[in-house]
Design a binder for these strands. Structure first.
Lengths: 204, 204
DNA sequence: CGAATGACAAATATTGAAATCCGTCATCGG
DNA sequence: CCGATGACGGATTTCAATATTTGTCATTCG
């Protein structure tokens, strides 16, 4: 391929953090979390592994950045339910269903990728905590809207606590630790029952 | 100790399934789930490992029996909240709090034992499923009582589904998979918030 | 000059041979 | 006769030697 003399093809474009993350995801998908090395990432990019260390201080930092990206995508996909119009109770059900759907679809479509994701999650609890805070914030906004609209009662303590409780109560349907249960035949009914419970709890 | 000539001391009493289970728990506590062997169990009992196989067909069956015993103890400790008197809503909160307390106390008091327990749980999903059904049945009885008393509304679908939803909604506070979170400083608040949510949902 | 390289030491993972364990069963002892 | 035993083959686990990976840095390249 003579790429050592070529200055314009993709493989020789300037090495950016973004491109490294892209390559890291590919390597994680291909080899799994245990066997994905930064040498592999460098090979995919056609550079030496030393170059990767110019952009990420450690392998852990690289994996953390990948985890953050993955989680950020979830937040973005749920944003419509927070910002778009419609009754808040319907938006809440929509948000919860979308979150469950995203997770379940990912788990069902590619169990190995989900396992990889879970390993990354376990490695980066600080990143996950920030992400959870973000999600709980989204719920809080919906619940607050609902209170203003009159479809939800005033919170027992405050919106943040109520939102957290809603998030915790539906934990079984979005925490990757439970991914194994999501292929059960009656999981849909169980989810609907919990959402119904939550909606009852919030009604004025 | 010359126990080979002694016919009346504890170690030479008839070998019963009960005594084997006792010894197995001890070995599991001492060596952990990975290094606990049936030879160890036999040594504790002062018999050959072949004798253990007269009472349990396989090592897996032995561990399953231990798991069943541990779970059964939980059910027994919660029974008062199902059978004793008092308003059903208070009994439900008591039951949930007791379950959380039992699990958390076990996890906090001895993290290694909790880890052992979790490994056993993971090995015997069939036993766990039966146990969960049992617990959900207890919730269902309380909720049914509450409906009769008028402190709980009629269930959306049926008592079993509602009970299951209550169990699922509080999953984060009894599933050993979340044991790591139970030492967080604000876990008590989070638990109280979810219980409060559940109580609101059940109110007429 | 700044970005990229690859040799290098320390840390981590892999391998395969030796040790241990599981489960069976012919035999023993009371 | 009945339960306990321990030797045994096959499966699993340990452990130490080997190989790979991580992260650094002096050097090279454009």
């Amino acid at each position: 391929m003579a790429n050592k003399y070529c200055h314009s093809m993709a493989a020789t474009e300037t090495l950016t953090a973004e491109r490294i993350l892209e390559a890291t995801e590919e390597v994680l998908r291909r080899y799994g979390p245990a066997k994905a090395t930064v040498v592999d990432v460098a090979r995919v990019l056609g550079v030496s592994h030393g170059s990767v260390y110019r952009h990420f201080r450690t392998k852990a930092a690289l994996r953390e950045a990948v985890t953050e990206r993955w989680l950020e995508r979830t937040v973005v996909e749920l944003r419509p339910y927070v910002e778009d119009g419609g009754p808040a109770d319907e938006r809440l059900t929509g948000w919860l269903t979308a979150l469950f759907g995203l997770k379940r679809h990912k788990a069902g479509g590619d169990p190995e990728l989900m396992a990889t994701f879970m390993v990354l999650i376990g490695e980066n609890s600080a990143v996950v905590d920030r992400h959870v805070e973000h999600l709980v914030g989204q719920i809080a906004r919906i619940v607050e809207d609902g209170h203003r609209e009159g479809v939800f009662a005033a919170p027992e303590r405050d919106f943040a606590t109520t939102a957290r409780a809603v998030f915790d109560a539906t934990d079984r349907f979005h925490d990757p630790a439970h991914a194994g249960d999501w292929s059960a035949p009656d999981i849909g009914d169980a989810f609907a029952a919990v959402v119904s419970l939550v909606q009852r709890a919030l009604r004025p």
